[in-house]
Design a protein around this nucleic acid. Sequence first.
DNA 1: AGCAATAATTGACGCATGTAAAAAAACTTT
DNA 2: AAAGTTTTTTTACATGCGTCAATTATTGCT
Lengths: 345, 345
Amino acid sequence: MQKPKIHTMEELSSAIGVSRPTLSRYFQDPSKVSRTSANRILSGLEKVDYTPNFFATRMNRKTTGMIGVIIPYLNDLFFTRLLESIETAAMRAGYTVITQCSHADPAIEKRAAETFLSMNVDGAIVAPLGNHSDLQVYERLNDRLPFVLMDSRPETLADVDFVGTDHLQSTGAITEYLCRVGAPPVFLAMPRVNFNALEREAAYIKKMDELGFEPRIIGVDPMDSQDHFEGHGLAVLDDMFSRQELLDASFLCANDRVAIGALRAAAKHGLEPGALRRGGLRIAGHDDYPLCPFMTPTLTTVAQDVTAIGQAAVDHLLKKLRGENIDNNQVILLINGVLKLRESA
Amino acid sequence: MQKPKIHTMEELSSAIGVSRPTLSRYFQDPSKVSRTSANRILSGLEKVDYTPNFFATRMNRKTTGMIGVIIPYLNDLFFTRLLESIETAAMRAGYTVITQCSHADPAIEKRAAETFLSMNVDGAIVAPLGNHSDLQVYERLNDRLPFVLMDSRPETLADVDFVGTDHLQSTGAITEYLCRVGAPPVFLAMPRVNFNALEREAAYIKKMDELGFEPRIIGVDPMDSQDHFEGHGLAVLDDMFSRQELLDASFLCANDRVAIGALRAAAKHGLEPGALRRGGLRIAGHDDYPLCPFMTPTLTTVAQDVTAIGQAAVDHLLKKLRGENIDNNQVILLINGVLKLRESA
DNA sequence: AGCAATAATTGACGCATGTAAAAAAACTTT
DNA sequence: AAAGTTTTTTTACATGCGTCAATTATTGCT
């Protein structure tokens, strides 16, 4: 507090009697300076208040040590967990993460990408907005930077690396489980906000075909475009149950947030979904949203391995920015989901 | 894509035939340049690929147009909503928000604060970590920058401005409601991770005293220190119900996430909390977590006005950094909570 | 003590922009 | 068309630090 504020390395240099280039090297990596100088600098820093200017350092370094991350929503625990695992992995590797949230707006997403470019971030990881995103933004980033797409994948981008869940496996696994233990499930879709929505639908249909069941999908048209997920699930099933339809069906919801809305619809109509009530109403989700174990009934789902996805995204990005990708083929890392059997199905 | 990449303003200047200082002024504010030059620059930019270097611009401007925000958790929808409202308010005012999450680690919080200082952000808004934070970090920020503390308030900081919910009012209101409509509530505390935990406890006790009821607080010692909230609520009440205690009590939970755990404990023991069952078990929360309307039963709570808090924090910060705070007295903005009566109490 | 090896300092230049003052050019106005 | 006003260009310097080459100081070793 009372320590005198020092603004430049120059001042610091004359204040503690160590040359500026030495200071510069010290702040980049203390081990690049001799033991004695390091100690002299350390004890000097205790007497004054100085931090190297963030912009000046970053501007001149060839590498900024920053990686940019864009996610579409902040109000979704799936993305925040993903973000957390990325931050942890990046921090461990000595990188700083700059996060931008596109708030589901392609214009903001585009601007965020431009910001990353103008900041010379060392690499970028993006969870795409979905149908509305401008794919050129990803192509542009991919051209200019080590770049990894995450979570949801636009099929048409042939050169962009991707890390995410293997939805064919995950959705397949839960579909298979539901078919095995009870009535074949109806798929309660989510609004098609991203590419996963369609991928999960497709995976469901494929597995149903495989098992010889008739697929059926409801809730494709959002009833309430305001509320993407919980509200959507609630509205669709509330409507259904009010018409006394599908009262004892099995539902596979496109994600857990939709499933939470579905659970609410069931409760509203006095229905008690559950695995134990053979033949009765069942509701399952996808993702393993953190609140699943606390719902009533607890929600059966397939977990996406968020930690693994985040870690893999960072690992792969670092490999790229170190130039370790041997060939230039597109890399697609798909990570398996894990069934979480609970009460609801 | 195919447009030639231009790296410096100098190059751009000779490429489109406009002097560099004019370009500089254009990029800071297009209106500071004549109509004709603006058009010439615009059409020039369509032919090439150029963005001003983020660091170089920021380094030289007296004002960076950035405000720093630190929040303790990302995996909490309360904070993400707060963050969203701050970002919206800041964006509207033309500021860029840099977010850092301290991951409940005082060392990370401190480093984030230092980063903001070294970036010359125009101001900072921080939601404190809680008991473990280093208060000197806030004092330091407050000394060096326009600074506002948000959400939870360390009492000992006499000079730091604050924006948050009036817990005396909000907790008082729900306590009063619970007393009025049924049995006086027991307070199910949350782990004392931040100052709000204690403030709500105190507000509960005060209101109970006022109404002539005996306050009772449970769950102060975290049973499971891993899981702060839902798991805590579940563990405490599960334990309680297993011993056949408090089976028909009213519970006021320190926040909604604890309440969600409490709901789960009730369901696990076959109990159905509800406002309609007079004299029976009731559970209420605090915050209006977005999932409250989707719980079973839907969760009665007091809403914190997140939008108002975020907006007020930004407004006040902008006022400070424009030098509009007339006197230097500490400003404390307290915003009222609003009762959300639902099924659970 | 003397020599080689290692580390630190000095001085100079570069980075991509902001900014200010003076000169030149482009418009307005009468 | 001349005078006056606004805008742009020119020129030069500033920002805070990275980086390099050459020089000097320090260290370890025999």
